[in-house]
């Protein structure tokens, strides 16, 4: 019987290194999958997940995530994209990550103050509000595609839709997000 999320978080707070093994056992598989979606290399993905465990170790404490699975998924995702960018700093790649960048390109182009903490926080709030009002299926597709970097093919299988429908749905959702930002006064 695996440990509960609360138990793992408690172990992390107590600086018990066994927590990392528990994390690996419980969430290693899907963290690896997320990282591999981005890096498209299993070995790199595994290294990246190890980086993610270290980041978790550094973040907890002081943080105490409410949803450990999402917390580590986001860390794995961001660790993977950092690694991807480091590897492709000199030139554009041609993998799944680039395709995702391309798809997202233009949705909020023209926003220049995303480095400012407050502005960034507000933009994240805008996205959160937008996602909240989406129907669940669209939201899931959007998150799987742009947060977990899943392929359209994979998403279509998960959601029982054909790929074209998923792509159209994603396209509409991107457009809707663009409109949402415009409505909230962003000059896009």
């Amino acid at each position: 019987m695996g440990l509960t999320d609360s138990e793992i978080i408690s172990m992390l707070w107590e600086r018990d290194e066994k927590a990392l093994a528990a994390l690996s056992e419980k969430y290693g598989g899907y963290c690896s999958a997320i990282a591999e979606n981005i890096l498209e290399n299993r070995e790199d993905a595994e290294e990246c997940v190890n980086d993610a465990y270290l980041r978790v170790w550094e973040k907890i404490p002081p943080e105490k995530p409410k949803i450990l699975s999402a917390f580590i998924a986001k860390i794995a995702r961001n660790a993977a994209i950092d690694r991807y960018r480091a590897a492709h700093a000199q030139k554009r790649g041609c993998g799944n990550a680039e395709l995702i960048f391309d798809e997202l390109d233009g949705v909020i182009s023209g926003v220049h103050n995303a480095e400012d903490f407050a502005a960034r926080r507000e933009m994240i709030n805008t996205i959160n509000r937008f996602l909240k009002r989406l129907p669940a299926k669209k939201r899931t597709a959007f998150v799987l595609r742009y947060c977990c970097c899943e392929s359209v093919q994979s998403i279509s299988r998960r959601l029982g839709m054909n790929e074209n429908s998923v792509s159209v749905m994603l396209s509409r959702t991107r457009n809707a997000l663009h409109e949402q930002f415009k409505r909230e006064g962003y000059n896009l």
């Binding site: 949803i67 917390f71 994209i81 960034r120 994240i124 996205i127 669940a136 998150v143």
Partner: peptide, 23 residues
Amino acid sequence: MKNTLFDLLGEIDDKFYEEALWE
């Protein structure tokens, strides 16, 4: 290479990840 939206999506509410991946 830089994609602001992609970066922001790495910081959205945990519950959306939770829903997509686990719920």
